[in-house]
Design a protein around this nucleic acid. Structure first.
Length: 106
DNA sequence: ACCTTGACCACAA
DNA sequence: CTTGTGGCCAAGG
């Protein structure tokens, strides 16, 4: 589906994402909740379509997993800005962000 | 109005 | 770890 780029929801999502500090993250659900919504999926759709110019890697899933299909590119950023990752294997086995330390709330 | 499609979420088995 | 279920919400057919 295609979201309306001028939609206030889309505008608000991008505004919140751009306010996330380096080394910190929010979940899709967190972003929705900040807007008083539970539309985590719509946040995902928003990032997929309009997130290219935003720090999209700072928005992850509730389990600490980076966005599907962008794991490798996200890892580059996490290492660069020292985002806390879950101890253990980070390579092919998959990695996770340590939400307990990296989660950011506005 | 109903159905389907998602960078989703929570919880159970 | 994997499925399955039910919930969420915008957009399009």
């Amino acid at each position: 589906m295609r979201l309306n780029p001028a939609s206030p929801f889309v505008e608000a999502v991008l505004e919140i994402v751009e306010a996330i500090p380096p080394g910190r993250v929010m979940t899709y659900g967190d972003v929705a909740a900040t807007l008083g919504s539970r539309a985590a999926r719509v946040v995902g759709q928003t990032m997929a379509q309009f997130g290219a110019d935003a720090p999209w890697w700072r928005v992850i899933r509730a389990g600490g997993h980076p966005p599907i299909g962008h794991e490798a590119r996200a890892l580059v950023h996490y290492r660069a800005e020292k985002t806390p990752l879950k101890p253990g294997a980070e390579p092919e086995t998959g990695y996770r962000v340590d939400l307990s330390r990296a989660r950011w709330r506005p």
